[in-house]
Design a protein around this nucleic acid. Structure first.
Lengths: 255, 255
DNA sequence: GGAAGCGTTACGTTTAGCGTAACATGCCGG
DNA sequence: CCGGCATGTTACGCTAAACGTAACGCTTCC
């Protein structure tokens, strides 16, 4: 371990850290087995077994009769409590719903987390064909309209957020740093970002930033819709509605 | 520590156990301070500080600028994943919503957890005056219509679930073991339970059991409504709708 | 202006809990 | 039918992770 890592981990509890790894792994892979978890996170089976037992006793995970693990009731309770405690999510939820009802499409709230974009709230309309969304899903920052999260960062922070290799998802994905930076400049000036098929061919997504009191960007609201039913003249309307929603969220947060 | 406790705690990880205590305490008391948490769960401040730091680094909790703690984004992600992984909750949610829309009142799903009833799913209608409900809220088993959870237990299990002292909430609360057992017998024969003001004066609540494949009771669905707008002739309708919902949940679970 | 709270740091001691190794069990293929 | 390989599980001795004590500044409130 180098000095940097030593500094990072000073005065933390390893067992808790590993236990969080286990929880996240179970969250990602429902019905996983002890051996899988141990392999995934690179620990020994006895260690993970002890942790799973502890968490099972507290209802954080559940062990099925076939020996596979899932998250448990306590995790639901924690999560529900969390969504009422995280201001951003609590405020945004009804606003996302109102917006989504209005345009009858999927809406999302995304933040930067660990160099990726993370969905922390969403609304899906009740129509047969809609964009599927999932809280907790992570996406790279360079593709799709939530690249807007990068656009307002201080230059050097932005630079280190952009990985050297930009993965390509579709022919329209931006994969060179130069083009991405040019696009980010344009996005910053426009105040919104429209992505047509950068992540998935058939999808259009439009994002605007959610501003903190000091003008910094703390999240992005977006509308995601199938390309075939999104006409060019829908876009300005979407942008206006998104800006309205974004403003309401900022106000709700007390700014 | 006596032998029993030793046996209980064999091959678990103490640090994880304490960390769950911390999480649950933060869930219960948003914006709590380090010293409060340490006091609440009877641990030293440095220990809790180390844990909070570890969890904060992973986004499980958030520390505000004023030094208070709340649950964080990772907790939301975990909770959302959990509600899709716990079959009972995943299946029950849309059914609870449909039921709640039909009667325009609050509906809940409750299970037995640790000698109490625990709300693990709910629906609230969008009307001004409604019964408030909260996932994670615990209630004693002897009061209110969810006492039905006790009614189908094997006699000796039931006996040890009923505490010696039955807390009184209202004049109508059952507080003697004999009366409670008589009531449970009646409930078991009727297949439903109606509570009028046992927990709170102004509330009526009706519960029916959710059955597993073997006929054992795994949960209770209930409708909770203000007493003034619940006429006697509403009750049979509620019971019928509840039984219907309960059957759908059982079927959804594959039974 | 001190007393009492807070969060935080440092450090030496100890015990929690780690990993190794061995075991029981189930499943598959030869 | 039996060995091979997977699984989950247990036992145990060793070690270092992390615990608690004590002391540190800081703020807040009498």
């Amino acid at each position: 371990m180098n000095d940097e890592e030593k500094e990072e981990k000073r005065s933390t509890v390893q067992a808790v850290d590993v236990c969080i790894d286990v929880l996240l792994d179970v969250a990602k892979n429902p019905d996983c087995r002890l051996a899988d978890i141990a392999r995934n996170i690179g620990e020994t089976k006895p260690r993970i077994l002890r942790m799973l037992r502890t968490m099972e006793r507290r209802g954080l995970v559940r062990k099925s009769s076939s020996g596979t693990y899932r998250l448990g009731n306590t995790a639901i309770v924690l999560g529900t409590a969390a969504s009422t405690q995280v201001d951003l999510v609590r405020i945004a939820n009804p606003i996302l719903e109102e917006l989504g009802q209005k345009v009858n499409e999927t809406t999302q709230l995304r933040i930067i987390d660990n160099g990726e974009s993370l969905c922390i709230a969403k609304f899906e309309p009740t129509r047969d064909l809609r964009v599927h969304s999932m809280i907790g899903r992570r996406r790279p920052l360079h593709a799709g309209s939530y690249k807007i999260l990068l656009a307002y960062l201080p230059p050097q922070v932005q630079a280190q957020m952009i990985p050297d290799k930009l993965e390509r998802f579709t022919p329209r994905t931006i994969t060179t740093r130069a083009r991405l930076e040019a696009e980010l400049k344009r996005v910053r000036e426009a105040g919104h970002c429209v992505s047509r098929g950068e992540v998935s061919d058939q999808l259009v997504s439009v994002s605007v930033p959610v501003l903190a009191f000091d003008g910094s960007v703390i999240a992005a609201v977006n509308i995601a819709a199938p390309a075939f039913r999104t006409q060019d003249n829908d876009i300005p309307r979407y942008i206006a509605l998104l800006k309205d929603a974004s403003r309401k969220i900022s106000e709700g947060l007390g700014w």
